[in-house]
Design a protein around this nucleic acid. Structure first.
Lengths: 358, 358
DNA sequence: CTGAAAGCGCTTACAG
DNA sequence: CTGAAAGCGCTTACAG
């Protein structure tokens, strides 16, 4: 009789083991080997385990609350079910959207590990070493600098987010920034602005270089003058200080609009304007990028190029699942072709630019 | 001659090994055993390894760019150098501060892994299982619900953040909310308000229950009426909708001030007021909690109870290092006693409440 | 279909 | 001071 040759399982009288149940515990309870437990736990039973054994093991797993030890599994398989997101900064609420998009696609299959740098500082090579020591299955790199990319190891699957201009062999997911920036400059030109000032981000990531050059191109197309050379980190106070310092020169050059690389910096511009009794939009128009939730309630409401962060996250995560050979969750709408998510940026016009320059 | 008995190291002619160098590689290069490499790599050489051996191994480590494999190390030691932060939501920029504070204290010693739930949803027991399968050295739980705490495993070191009312044996780091809420209610009472409306968070975490009860207590102390029962998730639009719906009743009850559980919800209140042409602060005063960076530039500027998020993160991380037996970095100012960081909340008064009710 | 065995790369007593 | 060996808990050929 099958089952008779099973040694009497160690008396459970000794109480639940301190700590987690192991595959050995499950095997003992189910009367099988650890190999079989592993097969069942990882779902690789197709044509290899009888259904009665599967049932027995499954119930033992259930009873003991067994969860595969991630560390041991990672060591044995050579890589962990962990995807690491490297992002420059978390204080920008915009990243919350990206993270949410990523997690919605990754689901339970992979853990998302976050590696954040200090504001304005890019993670360096030593970070990369410690990161890969965790044996991640994949690396998601948001808004990287060129130096950081150069230090990246070749090992794990890598997807770059918001990294225009990177020519590595990696998968890259970028916003379509052209639409939003063109619309922004067109809108300002239509309002009668002739001289625009640009507050850049000093973070030194490619996405900001692209934003600047797209605005330059659009300004040239419309015959507008663009004043550059001013930058700050992505922080309200720092941006306010930079704007305050730049103001005399901008004024002298006849600038009537301040375009900022991020909404956060635009908040600084608004604060600086308020402080110096410069009226927005009457004296100067102000715009940003990101369309943060709070941009609805600033004084005045902030015109902004909206970046679809959740779409970026979802698309990047889907790409990652492809690279990892895991099936991406089926798209909700079968109409879409490859990308279900629209990465087009979109201009949101609010009162901060609603004034016609005479 | 020491070193002569070293087998000629495998010909490097075959090129750098694909993948990372292992302790075995280092041992071969240095002419020692893996045991010794392990000792040197982890700095446990005190009285166990000769300085010449240390030097040899160190240089081999340098040469090969050896980094201890985190996974294997975690398996051998029983726990990983990973600290997991469980937070309800990342879209609130306030969490950026907390994360920054935590990382500044954890430094290179531990990796911070982030587990975020969907907005308004608490992570449940299955999350806990997968979390502990990673063998984290510690768990940092921010703003947990009672149910979540009940599902927590006893294993890893745990520090609760912003979890008033939790009576587990865990280390808990809380804000001192009394000061900020008392000042808020006093301020409103001084301005002549007699009936206050409260927009609660529907997230169901303890910190919000405490905020409400502290406001209730302060209102009672000052003889004010507090209207409750209205709540929304922490989201601008949701809050706006909730306020819009509540407005008739609040008006009828004579409320002249709307206190919100978060700045984000206060933004919604501002947006709703603007939409319905209710003037702030003339018709109604509005306040929040968090003092987000953008609260400086809302229209009008938002009065808010500032929560020192960075301090919370730093303090919690220090507590964690204590629990883990790792020395916390020495406090910058030796004056402080136990806590270097001030967790006192502070009322920041802006225009949204600057109107005397007649 | 099933299990014994080797191996993932470390760490840690333990014996020299 | 140093190294051989066992073990962490899995996974995966491999042989039945």
């Amino acid at each position: 009789m099958p089952g008779d040759d099973v040694e009497h399982t160690p008396p459970l009288a000794s109480g639940p083991r301190p700590g987690r149940a192991t595959a050995t515990d499950v095997a003992a309870l189910a009367g099988t080997s650890v190999s079989t437990v592993s097969l069942v736990a990882s779902g690789k039973t197709k044509g290899r385990v009888s259904s009665s054994t599967i049932a027995r093991v499954a119930s033992a797993i259930e009873t003991l609350g067994y969860v595969v030890d991630h560390t041991a599994s990672a060591l044995a398989r050579g890589s962990a079910d962990v995807v690491i997101l490297v992002a420059p900064d978390l204080s920008n609420p915009y990243y919350g959207d990206v993270v949410r998009g990523i997690m919605s696609v990754l689901g339970d299959r992979y853990q998302l590990l976050l590696s954040v740098a200090s504001p304005g500082v890019q993670p360096d090579a030593s970070v990369v070493g410690r990161l890969t020591a965790l044996r991640p299955a994949g690396l998601l790199i948001d808004a990287p600098s060129a130096e950081f990319l150069a230090a990246l190891p070749a090992g794990p699957a890598t997807v770059l987010l918001d990294a225009p201009g990177s020519a590595r062999g990696d998968a890259i997911v970028n916003y379509d920034l052209v639409r939003g920036t063109d619309d922004l400059v067109d809108h300002l030109a239509d309002q009668g602005h002739r001289v625009l000032a640009y507050l850049d981000s000093s973070t030194g990531t490619e996405t900001f270089a692209l934003r600047r050059s797209l605005i330059e191109a659009a300004a040239a197309r419309r015959g507008l003058t663009l004043l550059g050379g001013v930058a700050s980190v992505v922080d309200v106070s720092a941006a306010a200080a930079a704007v305050t310092a730049a103001w005399p020169e901008w004024r002298a050059s006849g600038a009537t609009a301040v375009l900022c690389a991020t909404d956060t910096q635009a908040y600084g511009a608004l604060a600086s304007a308020r402080l110096h009794e410069i009226r927005v939009p009457e004296d100067v128009a102000v715009s940003g990028f990101d369309d943060l939730p709070s941009s609805v309630v600033t004084a005045p409401g902030l015109t902004s190029v909206a970046l679809p962060g959740t779409s970026l996250g979802r698309t990047a995560a889907s790409r990652m699942l492809e690279l990892l050979g895991a099936a991406a969750p089926p798209p909700a709408n079968a109409a879409a072709d490859d990308d279900d998510d629209d990465l087009t940026t979109r201009l949101v016009i609010r009162d901060s630019t609603r004034h016609v320059v005479s």
